[in-house]
């Protein structure tokens, strides 16, 4: 009964959405000209990055907070335990991983740098960084993380804190995150740099902090 009800409702919603989309006329507003018009002052050349870190940089600030928050929540529900190192993988795999990691670091750095003028940016770079760490873990060369020490905590929170610090410091300009055009590029790069590191650690942490709970089951 419940299945049919929910299934029917879902089908109905899909049909209604499809129908409404097909009959929809053009959008009333177009933000593209505005995005393009201010691109020169935004400090970056890629429009998506400009939206992400300048026009709607506040969204991104909160989004970093959401990610860090998920990490806090995971740490909070996981009881502290000893770090666990997975069984070492095949030596060949280990070597391949060791080879891959420097390449991934380079790729990450490239993505970070490229974000200013083509698709890329801190999130993509951070994701590659995190992948490198997870890869090392899965091949048995990096233990799971225990309750984070002061250094790791600093690394995890640095991105948000730097972003926050810059946003607050720019209040001098008249509002939150109001980059002066001359400094916008450099400040965004600073933020992105710190974000990349922290996001890499956070994303890796979402995986590696969980590995400690493995030991105590039931």
């Amino acid at each position: 009964m419940k299945r049919f009800g929910i299934g029917g409702a879902a089908l109905l919603l899909a049909l209604a959405l499809g129908y409404a989309m097909l009959e929809l006329g053009p959008a009333r507003l177009d933000l593209r000209p505005a995005v393009a018009a201010h691109l020169a002052d935004s400090g970056v050349r890629h429009p998506v990055t400009a939206v992400l870190l300048n026009y709607r940089g506040y969204d991104t600030l909160l989004e970093v907070a959401v990610l860090l928050l998920a990490l806090f929540a995971i740490l909070a529900v996981t009881p502290p335990g000893p770090a666990r190192r997975p069984a070492p993988a095949d030596p060949l795999l280990q070597m391949l991983a060791r080879l891959a990691v420097p390449l991934m670091l380079v790729a990450s750095f490239y993505l970070l740098w490229a974000g200013a003028f083509r698709p890329g940016g801190a999130f993509q770079a951070g994701a590659v960084l995190a992948a490198a760490l997870v890869l090392l873990h899965l091949t048995g060369q990096l233990p799971g993380w225990p309750t984070p020490g002061a250094l790791l905590r600093g690394g995890l929170a640095a991105g948000l804190l730097v972003f926050l610090g810059v946003a607050a410091a720019l209040l001098i300009e008249g509002s939150l995150l109001q980059y002066p055009p001359a400094w916008a590029g450099r400040l965004i790069l600073l933020i992105e740099f710190c974000l990349t590191g922290s996001l890499g650690l956070i994303l890796a942490g979402l995986f590696l902090f969980l590995c400690q709970a493995e030991g105590e089951r039931r």
């Binding site: 907070a65 860090l68 806090f72 502290p80 309750t147 002061a150 905590r153 600093g154 995890l156 929170a157 948000l160 804190l161 926050l164 946003a167 607050a168 209040l171 001098i172 008249g174 509002s175 939150l176």
Partner: peptide
């Protein structure tokens, strides 16, 4: 610089955000 009212408005968001992150820095 911004006026007191806007400072209060922005402060209400930034303060708890910063204190939450800082509390994490201080340790469990």
């Amino acid at each position: 610089m911004i006026d007191a009212q806007q400072a209060a408005l922005v402060g209400l968001i930034l303060l708890p955000l910063a204190s939450g992150a800082a509390a994490f820095l201080l340790g469990p």
